[in-house]
Design a protein around this nucleic acid. Structure first.
Length: 247
DNA sequence: TAGGCCATCTGGTCCT
DNA sequence: AGGACCAGATGGCCTA
């Protein structure tokens, strides 16, 4: 998606800059060329030093004619090193800071998305090429961590049938962990939420009121990635219906 | 075509 | 002062 870098300071901002007293501090003016070279964002689609203006949908553009600007610049070029009005330079400085801030913000969001991708990579998904949305990833991670912690807790308590941590984790709950679940044994449990895994018999009913969103109630459909926990105990799965609801 | 999701820009606020 | 963080606005893309 092309970044609309031609967006600009708001009219209010421009107006405030033109009336700002701080412009008097900029007594050493730059020429147009210097100003442009130093301050113009490299990817800007607008003309040299021309403040790009965000045009509201349906609104018309500025009344400036490009040809007139060109003539003026040509005249300045002939004259030599023409001066830039202080308010224009102030505007450019603000624009430059804005562009830098945009760049940082973009980078920050990229980092955030990279972290989100890392989180996705350690969460099971079905089908394999399914990509959880951001909100799904966060909710699923929350529920998934809780479910795994609960499984460990139950294992440590000593489970009916002699279930132990070794019985639950890691090998028999491997489908819970990174890596594709085997289609034969997991597709059903993934899709329908059934707990046919070896872990299913290991759990006791849960009534912990501290479980996530214990008071919430909701329904979920087959294939809902948020509530399909292959390898988690059946009764735990029942409790997962009280996880963070997915709206 | 409407709605969901996403990337990006933007201005405000807080922190160092 | 400048950077990080945040939330609102906007527009593009995709899907039911």
């Amino acid at each position: 998606m092309p970044a609309p870098l031609e967006t600009c300071l708001s009219d209010l901002d421009c107006a405030s800059s033109s009336s700002s007293n701080s412009s008097s501090d900029l007594s050493s003016f730059l020429t147009d060329e210097e100003d442009c070279a130093r301050l113009q964002p490299p990817a800007s689609a607008s003309g040299p030093c021309a403040p790009a203006r965000r045009v509201a949908p349906g609104a018309t553009g500025t009344s400036e004619v490009p040809g007139v600007q060109d003539e003026e610049q040509e005249r300045r070029r002939r004259r030599g090193r023409a001066r830039v009005r202080p308010e224009a330079l102030l505007h450019s400085l603000r624009r430059s800071r804005r562009v830098k801030a945009n760049d940082r913000e973009r980078n920050r969001m990229h980092n955030l998305n990279a972290a989100l991708d890392a989180l996705r990579s350690v969460l099971p998904s079905f089908p394999d090429d399914t990509k959880l949305t951001k909100i799904e990833t966060l909710r699923f991670a929350y529920n998934y961590i809780w479910a795994l912690a609960e499984t460990l807790r139950l294992a440590d308590q000593g489970l009916p049938g002699g279930g132990a941590r070794e019985r639950l984790l890691p090998h028999q709950c491997a489908p819970c962990l990174p890596g594709p679940p085997s289609p034969a044994s997991d597709a059903e449990s993934w899709g329908s939420g059934a707990a046919a895994s070896p872990c299913a018999a290991a759990a006791s009913p849960l009534s912990d009121p501290s479980s996530p969103a214990a008071s919430e109630d909701f329904t979920y459909g087959p294939g809902d990635p948020l509530f399909s926990f292959p390898g988690l105990p059946k009764d735990l799965l029942h409790t997962t219906s009280r996880f963070i609801p997915y709206h």
